[in-house]
Write a protein that binds this DNA or RNA. Structure first.
Length: 573
RNA sequence: CGGGGCGUAGCGCAGUCUGGUAGCGCACCUGGUUUGGGACCAGGGAGUCGGAGGUUCAAAUCCUCUCGCCCCGACCA
């Protein structure tokens, strides 16, 4: 491709709208442009990156025996009523009506469509297992799209769905996908980790997330320093601390203290000169049913996902001011468990074995000290409802846990028979009896993966693409296109590389060399060849590696071979 | 949806407080010089100041309403 014939509208300055690096760089490199919040156009350069990412995913899915299909983006509401999700999915599901006022939605995921498809075409155990996938558009009307294509509303996803005769088969399908995902992210050259995850509203019994490690990631990964346990913070279990039995003799007398305007943990601990671990945070939650009060230590964070799973409810959110006052009869910041009536109180395991707590007094500007469980209030149940933190004990081996941040690029689920039962996707087994297929589903965000690669690999000059998804392998910078001799050499080299099937971009623009070098750095092409006056005078060109900055002088005659050799090497490492 | 911020040329911004000719840098077009890390000279095009209403002799600027976008929280690939 000739740069002059291509379209790479690079930006010299950072667009004001972009905060995270991958978003900025994708805009600056002319890969994407925004149309509306969370809705992006992909320009030619971005398209090449997306296509390459998708192709690697496709190859590995095919290798794992999955079959590519294309499923409709616009889906009839009836399917969603069948699965029961029409009323559950919430506002994220963009609903629309056709000219006949029939309800439709834009597909945020395709379990319904695929299950409906499969139940129509598969009826015998002889046709199973089967795994169907597509690489296609999804639309989720996200509450808050952000970070460019990292969390877009419209995005490209690879979604695969497996159907098996039984649980054992489903586990095998799951394992195949797990392995395929590992291969995919390895081939993409990403530092990643597969972690245990909460299965969320898609449902199912078991799931893993594939996280690309990056400081700007939205997810927190909890990993063991010793064994291979790793989980999403949402899910990460904590080994229950051994609670020493409390001695009632050590209970001090309950007291009220005035704590004017002190609402936060820091303010209260600072004022009373106590450790945050002896404070009880009292959190009121509104759920679909009754409000719930959750208690965690001042030095711990509540894990709403764990609480939600414990309560087995669909909706759970922190109470608003009004509900807090109704439950505690005090403004926000002074809630405590003592004296609460008619509400379930769930306490984190971390409260066990401890005495003489500080809590809110359920009265403005009042806290209580020397509060003790079972003397001053009772707990409905104890459970693990807090977030793991650095230094907690691994639930598997007991060693220390650490935390890192990650970007969720893939997610695999064992669905079981949730959809096949709801939608009657059954088959006849060898004995002639009808059974529900056992399903799994497997997603990869293609654009997000490309963005994550950029997030993980860039410097102050721009993107440093991993070779497998770089839009071009090589860029030839023709320093002075008005110099006929330079031009000849560059053109010759360009044709040689094309003949070798090497993806090459020839920067033949009549621009200053500095602009060309900066653009080459910005768009992150792995290898740069500079054809300038040395090429004419001494028959030498510079090869420069984007990643390391290493420069090598190579004779014009041998540069094609040197490049081909280098690309072969990187493809195998 | 709650909290914070921003809408002025393709991009980045100034001008708004204190109403009076719509500006700067980059990009773009023409000509010339230049060509190994974002050149220079000369000339040029481009904005209903997000939109609607109001106040005023006069509104980018003041008032009211509205739309859009970004950031922080509840969602997820």
């Amino acid at each position: 491709m000739r740069y002059s014939q291509f379209l790479i509208p690079t930006l010299r300055e950072d667009p004001a709208e972009a905060e995270v690096m991958s978003h900025r760089l994708m805009l600056r490199a002319g890969m994407i442009r925004k149309l509306a919040a969370g809705i992006y156009s992909t320009l030619p350069l971005g398209e090449r990156v997306i296509k390459k990412t998708a192709q690697i995913v496709r190859e590995e899915m095919n290798r794992a025996g999955a079959l590519e299909v294309t499923l409709p983006f616009v889906q009839p509401a009836e399917l969603w009523h069948e699965s029961g999700r029409w009323n559950v999915y919430g506002k994220e599901l963009l609903r629309l009506k056709d000219r006949n006022e029939r309800d439709f939605c834009l597909g945020p995921t395709h379990e319904e469509v695929i299950t409906d498809l499969v139940k129509g075409v598969i009826s015998s155990y002889k046709q199973l297992p089967v795994n169907l996938y597509q690489i296609h558009i999804k639309f989720r009307d996200e509450i808050r799209p952000r970070f460019g294509v990292m969390r877009a509303r419209e995005f490209i996803m690879k979604d695969a769905y497996s159907f098996d005769v039984d649980e054992k088969g489903a586990e095998e399908s799951y394992r195949k996908m797990y392995d395929a995902y590992c291969r995919i992210f390895e081939r993409l050259g990403l530092k990643f980790r597969a972690v245990e995850a909460d299965s969320g509203p898609i449902g199912g019994s078991f799931s893993h997330e594939f996280m690309v490690l990056a400081d700007t990631g939205e997810d927190v990964i909890v990993a063991c320093t010793d064994c291979d346990y790793a989980a999403n913070m949402e899910k990460a279990e904590i080994q229950a601390p051994q609670a020493a039995p409390v001695k009632k003799d050590d209970f001090n007398e309950l007291q009220r203290v005035e704590t004017p305007q002190m609402k936060t943990i820091e303010e209260v601990t600072g004022f009373l000169n106590v450790d945050a671990s002896s404070l009880i945070k009292t959190l009121v939650f509104a759920s679909a049913h009754d409000p719930v009060v959750a208690l965690v230590r001042g030095d711990h964070e509540i894990n709403e996902i764990k609480l939600k799973n414990l309560l087995a409810c669909d909706h759970l959110e922190l109470a608003d001011e009004e509900l807090i006052e109704r439950i505690t009869h005090a403004p926000r910041g002074f809630a405590g468990p003592v004296g609460l009536k008619d509400v379930e109180i769930i306490a984190d395991l971390g409260l066990q074995g401890r005495i003489n707590f500080v809590t809110g007094g359920n009265e403005k500007d009042i806290h209580l000290i020397n509060v003790n469980i079972n003397r001053d209030f009772t707990v409905s149940r104890f459970a693990d409802i807090r977030c793991a933190q650095e230094g907690d004990s691994c639930p598997r081996c007991g060693e220390k846990l650490t935390t890192t941040r990650g970007i969720e690029v893939g997610h695999i689920f064992k669905l079981g028979t949730k959809y096949s039962e709801a939608m009657q996707a059954t088959y006849l087994d060898a004995g002639g009896s009808s059974k529900p297929m056992v399903m799994g589903c497997y997603g990869i965000g293609i654009g997000r993966t490309a963005a994550a690669a950029i997030e993980q690999s860039h410097d102050e000059h721009g993107i440093i693409f991993p070779e497998p998804i770089a839009p071009f392998s090589v860029i030839i910078v023709l320093v002075n296109p008005t110099d006929e001799k330079q031009k000849q050499i560059a053109e010759h080299l360009y044709n040689d590389l094309l003949a070798q099937d090497i993806e090459v971009l020839l920067d033949d623009r009549d621009e200053r060399p500095g602009s060309k070098f900066n653009d080459a750095d910005l768009v992150g092409i792995p290898l740069r060849v500079t054809v300038g006056k040395f090429a004419v005078k001494e028959n030498m060109v510079d090869l420069k590696w984007r990643k390391t900055g290493e420069v090598k002088q190579v004779a014009v005659d041998s540069v094609t071979e040197a490049i081909a050799e280098n690309l072969r090497k990187t493809n195998f490492t």
